[in-house]
Amino acid sequence: MIISGKPQRHEKPWRLVMYRTDPDGKCVPDYKVTEFDDLIHEYYTQRTLELERLQQLLSSQEISPVHFFMEYHHMSVRDVASRMNLRLSVVKKHLTPQGFEKVDVATLKRYARIFDIGVSDFFQFLFVPPEVGISVEQRSERLLQHVVITVANE
């Protein structure tokens, strides 16, 4: 998984079409920033905390990489099993480090598709400093990851 040193944040206010009443009592659409915009900032903060927590669990071999991505993307085991077209018990096995070791490459490719990552992301964390640019392209049905790293000239 590639983790950028640039913290994820809510850069510009997100606008939604919301209905409000005008002075004549008419209910009209208004393209505006949501009243709960601050929850979006909170979402990114929480996501950073979640990433740290899951990395710790992964490092201490309490969870498998499949479990890591499932929780990171707020998915349930049932949803993952349905999308993978696998029995619930099989997915549950893949959530443990021991079970993950037995997953074949074809299955990993399918997991990679539902988490929208490359197969290599299951096996490494790549930390990229904020001043470094990075672009990633998945090839060969996510089996190969083409990474381009750019360093700004001083």
Partner: peptide, 8 residues
Amino acid sequence: EDQGTGGG
């Protein structure tokens, strides 16, 4: 509110 409801 925010998930595509237009509010309320």
